[in-house]
Design a protein around this nucleic acid. Structure first.
Length: 484
RNA sequence: CGGGGCGUAGCGCAGUCCGGUUAGCGCGCUUGAUUUGGGUUCAAGAGGCCCCCGGUUCAAAUCCGGGCGCCCCGACCA
């Protein structure tokens, strides 16, 4: 159980630790409805940082935002066989509206391929209309059995991109472009190292030709699918009649894609970087990159200290740095240190009477605890020093997460017992895998885990090896790991 | 939907077995002092449909019956 002053240690109970941090850092709160959450302002700012990083990249690659309705006619979901089978168990259905039974029930969207497919069928006539590159930021609902704050809630926020193309190749190129975009965002903005790869047939999106994903290792070594990109082939085009006349005046079905990142990503940030003192936010995502804690005893000390604090803030803001001055009365500096460490602010700037006198400030970095991470710098040119420090913190956090992950990746060839030991101890096993449903099911039954992906980065490209289960020659290796 | 646990102040809990003064404790909150370079200390306060409905009884947080809700472990999942 967490004491009031801290959180459950990660090593003791990672799950409790996660819940403690999310609540104590005020990212989210429970809602009156099971499985739903209130995203608190600080948590929402993190989500806005995710949105900002992704949205910019979407627009740079030619996508536009639009908005499609929350309600989808029930019949739409039934048009694509795999899709309906995949989503039926977790649908929320509206049967009464305005006090009257509806002629056709309405589905609260679990995802929008169907309604967007319907719209694209209307809009697309000619090859000149292609490609269509649209994204929407929206909420979706999936009636989940077991939920956890951010990682799996019944309603969640996400972006879903939906594109239509003239050829398989263009659709495939788009699908891969987005996966690269996601990976770049995760690494460059969130300091989360991710593995890009293709999902097994069992794990792909319901209705997709094939799915790609970025997989990240959390602090407890479990895998978290942090973003997915699907090549839908012509499955939805055929179900919704999305057709165009090509340059030879021949009618063709479109090739479509869809891809998404959700509020789950906030959970990924928490679980990748957090420690026993709470959150550790990657500088580019942090709502506040610097928090200034003023230190003083008497009124005659307070005035010059506060003056320096506001002056430092102005200097940082002018350099485009996000800063907060913690001028709360009644809390001691020590309390504030702990408070902002819980909230994961990358840099704490302390300004006291001694700093006023010496024209200096103290900078303490969140990623390196204690005195090691603390230094005194001159007030003159502080913005540049902070800027460098933020870069360094990002690099260190990425390096730490990458090191932790790589230390837990194991290559296994042909030894099913050893394979089991690895995944049961929480490691990720990279092994030859035929991709077959029976083999994957056996692993699931034996070790409670399924494949994460066939990584693009194969250790033995062009070679073959024995599937870890059936022993048949397989062309690729796949990662297996327990996951969220 | 199977297996466990729990509903008492904002949060965490004690009290329930064995019915009986005014229902307590810690944290948090308010006010005032004190403190402030790593979670100060003290004082005085505020705050309760004891999950809901019904029953037994002179008397129910406590016993009995029914309901509802939540959490944890499994199958399903961004």
């Amino acid at each position: 159980m967490a004491s009031d002053k801290g959180v459950t240690p990660r090593s003791e109970d990672f799950s409790r630790w996660y819940t403690d941090v999310v609540q104590k850092a005020e990212l989210a709160d429970y809602a009156p409805v099971r499985g739903c959450m209130i995203i608190l302002p600080y948590g929402y700012e993190l989500w806005e940082a995710v949105k900002g990083g992704l949205d910019r990249r979407f627009k740079e690659t030619g996508h536009q935002n639009a908005y499609f309705p929350l309600f989808i006619p029930e019949s739409f979901l039934k048009k694509e066989a795999e899709h309906v089978e995949g989503f039926s168990p977790e649908l929320a259905v509206v049967t009464i509206g305005g006090g009257k039974e509806l002629e056709e029930p309405l589905i609260v969207r679990p995802t929008s391929e169907t309604i967007i497919g319907w719209a694209y069928a209307k809009w697309i006539q000619s090859y000149r209309d292609l490609p269509v590159l649209i994204n929407q930021w929206a909420n979706v609902v999936r009636w989940e059995m077991r939920t956890r704050l951010f990682l799996r809630t019944m309603e969640f926020l996400w972006q879903e991109g939906h594109t239509a193309h003239a050829t398989y190749e263009e659709a495939e190129e788009e699908t891969r472009r987005i996966l690269d975009l996601y990976a770049d965002f995760a690494i460059a903005d969130a300091a989360i190292p991710v593995i890009k790869g293709r999902k097994s047939p069992q794990e792909k999106f319901a209705g997709a030709l094939h799915s790609y994903a970025i997989e990240a290792m959390m602090g407890d070594k479990r895998a978290l699918q942090s973003g997915t990109s699907h090549n839908l082939g012509q499955n939805f085009a055929k179900a919704f009649d999305i057709k165009y006349l090509d340059i030879n005046n021949e009618l063709q079905y479109c090739w479509t894609t869809s891809w998404g990142v959700s509020t789950r990503f906030v959970g990924a940030i928490v679980m990748t970087h957090g420690d026993d003192k709470g959150l550790r936010l990657p500088p580019r995502m942090a709502p506040y990159q610097v928090v200034i804690v003023p230190i003083y005893r008497e009124e005659d000390e307070k005035t010059p200290v506060m003056e320096a604090a506001w002056r430092m803030k102005a200097a940082l803001v002018a350099a485009g740095i996000r800063v907060h001055v913690d001028d709360r009365e009644g809390q001691t500096p020590g309390f504030k240190y702990n408070d902002w460490e819980m909230r994961g602010v990358p840099i704490r700037m302390e300004i006291g009477p001694r700093d006023v006198e010496k024209q200096s400030v103290a900078l303490a970095r969140r990623d390196i605890p204690g005195k090691e991470g603390k230094q005194f710098v001159p007030q003159e040119g502080v913005a540049a020093a902070v800027q460098d420090l933020l870069e360094s913190i990002h690099a260190t956090m990425l390096q730490q997460a990458t090191g932790m992950r790589d230390a837990n990746l194991f290559e296994i060839v042909g030894d099913y017992g050893r394979f089991g030991e690895v995944v049961e101890s929480g490691g990720w096993a990279l092994t030859w895998f035929c991709g077959g449903a029976a083999c994957e099911q056996k692993i699931k039954d034996d070790y409670q885990c399924v494949s994460r992906c066939f990584p693009f980065d194969q250790p033995y490209p062009g070679q073959q090896g024995p599937c870890i289960v059936c022993g048949h020659r397989s062309a690729e290796m796949a990662y297996f790991a327990r996951s969220y």
